[in-house]
Write a protein that binds this DNA or RNA. Structure first.
Length: 200
DNA sequence: CTAACGATTCGCT
DNA sequence: GCGAATCGTTAGT
């Protein structure tokens, strides 16, 4: 567990910068003794102020969004469409509810475990390129709601390979049409030449 | 208590 | 490309 990103990394007040910076970082989980890891290839930023796409927009505190209002560096996992666990990284300081949705990853360690969790045999982008399925592959569900991102069940590590800004595509977020004009914000980021992206 | 609705995925046409 | 699956959360009665 060398190169683990420290809690201070998540307290940055610029969630859009962090969403972009997270591209290329390594995400690791150790669930019931099963270790898996992957490189983050796609993210989306959600800001707690003035962003109708964010569940916690303008101080909307509910039992579900509560974790986003705490100090950054925790997991925000919620159930979407009654089926999928979506994994978010909370950021910013106490009281400011920002979060970053991880939308796709490229598997590194524990590929067999991921295939098993997904009931698959073929190793391709359909294993982890999408917010619901990457959670399933990494063993992330709502029992990790509010889990610390510096371990022991889940943590992030520095990028295995340096990523330059020119390798990252900035575009609009997916599935947030209900947010009106906020849906037009260029707050989605993905690795330009990667196959491991949910949609181009 | 009730009802509407997803930050999606998969299978079938 | 389209529609079903599926259920916790949320807001309103």
């Amino acid at each position: 567990m060398a190169n683990v990103l420290p809690l201070s990394y998540y307290q940055n007040d610029d969630v859009v910068f962090l969403a972009k910076d997270l591209i290329g970082k390594k995400i690791c989980t150790n669930i019931n003794g099963q270790f898996t890891s992957a490189v983050i290839t796609e993210t989306e930023a959600y800001c707690g102020r003035n962003d109708k796409a964010c569940h916690a927009n303008n101080g909307k505190r509910t039992k579900r969004t509560e974790i986003m209002f705490q100090e950054g560096g925790k997991a925000y996992v919620y159930l979407c469409y009654g089926i999928h666990n979506l994994f978010n990284i909370t950021t910013n300081i106490d009281g400011l509810a920002d979060a970053i949705l991880v939308r796709a990853v490229q598997p590194l360690d524990g590929k067999e475990i991921m295939l098993q969790r997904r009931n698959k045999t073929v190793f391709d982008k359909s294993l982890t390129s999408g917010p619901g399925i990457l959670s399933k592959a990494l063993g992330i569900d709502r029992s990790l709601y509010a889990a610390s991102l510096v371990g022991p069940s889940i943590w992030l590590e520095e990028s295995p390979e340096k990523i330059s800004s020119s390798q990252i595509v900035e575009t609009t977020r997916i599935g947030v049409d209900y947010a009106g004009e906020d849906a037009l914000r260029p707050w989605r980021f993905y690795l330009k030449n990667s196959e491991w992206v949910s949609k181009k």
